[in-house]
Each structure stands twice: as structure tokens, then as C-alpha cells.
Simulated assay, not measured.
Amino acid sequence: NYISDDGLIYVIRNGGSDHQIAPSKIVNIHTKKGIVKGVFGWPAIHTRLKGKEEPPKPDNICIDIGAKDKAEVEKMGVYVGCVITYPDEFHILNKDKFVCRALDNRMGGFMIAEVARLLYENKKQLPFGLYVTNSVQEEIGLRGAEMITHTIQPNVAIVTDVTHDTTTPMIDPKKQGYVEIGKGPVIAYAPAVQQKLRDLITETAEENKIPFQRAALSRATGTDTDAFAYSNGGVASALISLPLRYMHTTVEMVHRDDVENVIKMIYETLLKIKEGETFSYFK
């Protein structure tokens, strides 16, 4: 967003990136010349005023790429508008916890791809057309989902995203509801969720002994479900969420069992949808 005369780079948020995790992180700056490495610097503990410490904010964090001034930054190929990412890699903790940056919502893309793979490998012939889509720009206004639903004009939409595990510190389950990784996918109850479609999903899960949890959302779901549900005069939509810890950090964590059960839940639900089903309340 801004390069200072002394070569420090100030940034603005892209999507839902959390500025509070930035200090001391290594970053990749994507330029036409390739990746340029940098670090989010932060004043040493010895130099900060006790009792008056400022938290990291977008206007006080900056990236140092080792340049002496603005001209050297630009000579390295870094300009205003370059996208910056964290290079953190994928890890497995205690055999069944997946940890990585941007599991929200790369894991969603993986799960729906696995559903498509299972349908193909098991030679399932569905009595309806199926689109498996991975949308962009959900974090800045559900823009990809809006484009998808206007292009495809679906009759039904089953959406998957992540939701908060509320068992970690500083989260109040009385406000956020109780959700725990490893206890199963989370079925949303919300204005955008169509009841008959949701009931089909929960009944299918019970029949197939797929564990699941429930979450109540009083207004928007904050996911692509909202874009689908209210498009084209209304689309029967449902939301199946993957429990996740530490959302929008570089150590997002999910449970292997939950990933597998989201895949099973969507797969088995698709096999239950009959030809011509509209999920109308008036049938």
C-alpha cells in the first residue's frame, strides 16, 4: 500500500488476514521478477514502554526486505499492489490434526474434489446435473459465489466452509455455540438454509452413522450460502461446515475425521436427491 523513503513497506489487508499475527512472520512478496522475501518487524521487548504497549495494527506493522531506501525496494521489483503471502507449510499433529495456513477454505476445495472423485470412481449416475465449484473472493463479499450462481442458475446448492471450534481459550460457547474438532461436521440452522434440504442432510447422516454437530446463526452465515440462497428468486441451500481452530492465522487446525465425514456427508446426500426434487415447502 505504501513504501516509505527508508524502504519499509506498509500494507493493507487482503481478505480476512489477521494483522495481530504479523509481527516476526516471514513473508513472500509476489513480483514479476519472482518471490521477494521479507519480514514483519516489531520493536524489541526491551524498547517498548511497559504498560503502554501498542498491539499490532495495520498502521504500525511494516515489512522489511533489507532495502536501504524506496529506490532499492523498487529495484527489487516490489511495487504498490504486489500480493503478499505467508510461506508456512502443511503439518500433521498427533497423527490426525492437519495444520496449515488458508485451510479456510482450501480444505473446502479439497473436500468437494473428493466428492467428485468418489462419484466418478464408484460410477454413480445422478438423476440431475452436478456442478462442483470452488469460488473466489468469499472473504470480500461472496463475489465468486455470486458469479457462479448467476451463471449456473442452480436449483439446489450444498455449500461447505469452515466454522470455529469454540473449545479453545478466549471463545465463549454461550455466545458462539459449542463446536469441537473431531466431533463431526457442523450443520447450520440459519435464515439462508432451506429446512427440507437441511433435514435431508441430517437424516442421511443419521442413516449412515456420520457424526455431526449443529450451529445456530441468527442472521447471515458469513459464507457463500448467503449468495446462493438469495439469488435467482431463491435457491434451496444448505451449509455443512468443517470445525477449525485458529481461523485466519497461519496455524489453522482441522481434524482428519471431520474432513472425511464432510466428504461422506455430501456424497451420501447427493445420492439421496431424487430427479425433479425442488425441496418446495408446498409439496
Rank of each mutant, 00 (worst) to 15 (best):
C100M: 01
N155S: 10
S241F: 06
G66I: 05
K174R: 13
I12E: 00
E121G: 07
S218M: 14
E180D: 08
L93I: 15
D165C: 04
V39I: 15
D224Y: 09
P23E: 10
Y178H: 12
Y2P: 05
S280W: 11
N14A: 10
R143Q: 14
L271N: 14
V80K: 03
I112D: 00
P169E: 09
I21G: 12
D199V: 01
P55D: 07
P55I: 08
A205M: 08
H164K: 05
E53Y: 07
E138T: 07
I210P: 14
N232Y: 01
E260A: 01
P173Q: 13
Y10L: 02
V159K: 04
C100G: 15
G108R: 08
A22L: 14
L126H: 07
I148D: 05
A188H: 05
I273L: 07
R106I: 07
K209G: 06
I140M: 10
K183G: 03
N122H: 10
W42Q: 07
D165T: 04
G51Q: 13
T167N: 01
Y120C: 07
K175V: 11
N14M: 02
H46I: 13
N261D: 10
G38S: 04
Y2N: 10
P154F: 01
L142H: 11
V179D: 03
Q153A: 09
I273V: 10
I210V: 15
G233I: 02
I152T: 01
N208I: 01
I12Q: 04
I263D: 02
I92V: 15
A71N: 06
G16Y: 14
R143T: 06
G16F: 09
E139K: 11
V254H: 06
I29V: 14
T167E: 03
G38R: 02
I45V: 15
A215T: 13
P127K: 12
G34Q: 02
L103G: 05
L270F: 08
K274P: 11
G108N: 09
F279Q: 07
T221G: 01
D161T: 05
I266A: 03
Q125V: 15
Q125R: 15
V27K: 05
V136T: 12
E260D: 14
P191F: 14
T151C: 04
E121R: 11
H255S: 12
F282L: 06
V193H: 00
G222V: 13
K283Q: 05
R117F: 02
Y281C: 05
I171P: 08
G184K: 00
A157P: 07
I266C: 00
L244S: 04
G184V: 04
D226G: 06
M111R: 11
H46F: 11
R256I: 15
N28L: 12
